[in-house]
Design a protein around this nucleic acid. Structure first.
Lengths: 205, 205
DNA sequence: GACAGAACTAGAACGTGTTCCTATGATGGA
DNA sequence: TCCATCATAGGAACACGTTCTAGTTCTGTC
C-alpha cells in the first residue's frame, strides 16, 4: 500500500479507524457544503473531525485526494440509490440516460458549494489521484450502461465495448457540463438542455 | 475594467505595457514548458519577465488567470494557423473535425508539461476566470464549426445553432480526453481513438 | 503484565500564492 | 517646466497546503 493513495475502507483494520475515516469525510462534506472548495481547509477538517493534522494526512495524502474520495463516496451512494429504485423510466436508452443524468445533476445542484468543491478537486487532480478518479469513472460508466439497458432484454448481460464507449462519451459531456455550471458559465436550465441535446445526438436509436 | 479580469492586449495603452504583457506570457510558457503547472511560480514568472511581483498581479490577478490567458493566446495562434492553411482535408464533416482535433492534440502533446500546466489551470478555474474561459471556448467552437463546413457550399455562412451545439459537445469530449491524457489516465493513442469514436458517434452524415 | 512497533496528538516550520506598503519613475495636462 | 496621477520596483507580511519532530497512546505478541 503506497503512501500516495488514500486509505480505502478495506485498508482499515479497526473500528476506530473506520470511524475516523468516516468522521473525516463527514467533516469534509460539511465544510464543503458550507463554503465550497476554499472552505475545506485541512486544519479545519482535522479540527472538525477531531483528528490531528498528521492523521488526516495519513488517511488522505492531499486535499485533492480527500475531496475526490468524498466524491467517490457520494457517487457510490447515488449509484446505490438509483440501482435500488429498480427499472428506470423511459422507453428509449436516450430517455433513460437523460433521466439518470438529470436526477444526478439535480442532486448535485441542490448543494452548489459542495458540488463546486468536489468537481473542482476532480478536475484539478493529477496522476497521483488516478486510483480515486478511476473509481469515480467506474461508478459513472456503470450507472450509464445500467440506464441504457434497464428493463430491456439482456439487461443482466455485461455491457459491450460499444456500450462502454458510449457511456464514456456521455460521461465526458456530463462532466464538462457540470464544470460549466459550477464555474457559473451556464445555468441549471442550460445545463439540462445541453445534456439532452448531447445525449440525443449520441444515442439515436 | 474590473480588477478581477486579466488585462487584455486592447486594454494596454503604451508599447511598454504591451511588451511587459508579452514578456510575462513568454516567461509563463517557458516555465510551464520546463516544469509544468508547479514550476509556474509567480515569483519565478516575475523574475524571468523582469517585472515586479506586484506588476505581474496587476496584469493577471491570479496564477490561474495567467495560465488561462496563456492558453487563450495559444488557441488563438493555433486557430490562425489552421485558418490560414485554407481548406481542411477530409470528405465528410467528421473527417475534417477529426483532422483539426488530432492536429491540435498532437501540437499539445508535443509539449506535455506545457499542456499539463495550461489544461489544469483551465480545469481548476472558477467563475472569476469566466471571461478568459469564454475566449478559449469561442476559439474552440469557431475552429470546429469551420472544420465542419470547410470547402462546403455555404462555407462562409454563420454556423447554425445546431452547428454550435455539435461543436460544443465535441469540444466537451475533447477537453475530457485531454484531461485524461494529461493526468496519465490514457495514452496518446487511446486519446486519439476515443476522439475518433466520439466524433463518429456525433457526426454521422 | 511487559514489550515493540504502529498510530495518534500537538504544534512548529516551510513553500508558494496572494496582499500590502513605501519609494521611485513615467506620463500627460496646466 | 512643474505638478498630479498613475504604474512599477522591491520587499515584507499573511494564509493555507504540506512536512516534520517529539512525545503519547493504542494494539498485538510473548
Amino acid at each position: 500500500m503506497s503512501t500516495t493513495n488514500s486509505l480505502a475502507v478495506e485498508d482499515l483494520g479497526s473500528t476506530a479507524q473506520r470511524e475516523r475515516r468516516k468522521r473525516i469525510l463527514d467533516a469534509t462534506f460539511e465544510l464543503a457544503s458550507d463554503g465550497g472548495f476554499d472552505a475545506v481547509q485541512m486544519r479545519a477538517v482535522a479540527d472538525k473531525a477531531e483528528v490531528a493534522l498528521g492523521t488526516l494526512y495519513r488517511y488522505f495524502p492531499s486535499k485533492i485526494h480527500l475531496l475526490v474520495s468524498a466524491l467517490a463516496r457520494e457517487f457510490d451512494r447515488n449509484e446505490a440509490l438509483i440501482r435500488q429504485m429498480g427499472d428506470i423510466p423511459g422507453d428509449t436508452a436516450a430517455e433513460r440516460v437523460i433521466f439518470v443524468l438529470k436526477r444526478t445533476t439535480r442532486g448535485l445542484q441542490g448543494d452548489p458549494k459542495l458540488t463546486e468543491a468536489l468537481t473542482r478537486a476532480f478536475m484539478f487532480a493529477d496522476s497521483s489521484v488516478a486510483a480515486e478518479i478511476h473509481t469515480v469513472g467506474m461508478s459513472l460508466t456503470t450507472m450509464l450502461t445500467h440506464a441504457m439497458h434497464s428493463g430491456q432484454a439482456g439487461e443482466r448481460a455485461e455491457p459491450t465495448d460499444e456500450d462502454v464507449a458510449v457511456a464514456r462519451v456521455i460521461g465526458d459531456v456530463w462532466l464538462s457540463a457540470l464544470m460549466a455550471w459550477v464555474t457559473g458559465r451556464s445555468s441549471a436550465a442550460e445545463t439540462g438542455a445541453h445534456l439532452e441535446t448531447a445525449v440525443g445526438m449520441i444515442l439515436r436509436d
